[in-house]
Design a protein around this nucleic acid. Sequence first.
DNA 1: TACCAGGAGAAAA
DNA 2: TTTTCTCATGGT
Length: 222
Amino acid sequence: MEKHPALNLESLYEIFFHTYGRQYWWPGTTPFEVMVGAVLTQNTTWRNVERAIAALAVAGCLTPEGIAAADPKTLGALIRPSGYFNVKTRRLQNFCRWYLQRGQLPALDQTATDALRRELLAISGIGPETADDILLYALARPIFVIDAYTRRLMARLQLARGTEDYDTLRAFFEAELTPNVALYQEYHALIVRHGKDICRKKAPRCDICPLAAICPSESLYG
DNA sequence: TACCAGGAGAAAA
DNA sequence: TTTTCTCATGGT
């Protein structure tokens, strides 16, 4: 992992927060709704996830029992707007069956958090980002979430190649930052905000980027 | 029209 | 082990 002479992850956060302000993540009224959203948002815009969650709520199906017991066709129709609805039906039901079987989640110290993370990753359809969304935003554990925006940002700032495996990038953030749930929640949300608005995959808007003065890789854009 | 989006798992190389 | 393919709706 590269060291940037004029930039570290704490100063990057300060720039983002000063520029964009609080993002009020994760949208969702209960921890369980956050967990459902974490599955539904896989490779999908949040706007479409909101439609699916609203449909689940209207159908009285936004509960672990309701999702686990639902007919797959019915459930698929409800979550259809979020895309990949056949895949996500299986994933949601896998997750909810685990959730119901597991019962009360323990108070999570670091050891218990690591164990729970392994449990989540053992569920078919719960990968590292989804597991970490659940741990950070639903269960308030200091786990830094890595996503495609994070990889792109690290690559463009030349703080990383961006192709590192998930846990390497997560360890990089967690080593550079103090373990603080509110910080991690806000930071990830700010990275997504910056990625969607400015540091886009194609045609990034470097002219209005708050990092323009310190970003070394403008020549890589396009 | 083509590309992209708050990924993950299976199949192929 | 690493890369490629598949899943799918909705916005730009």
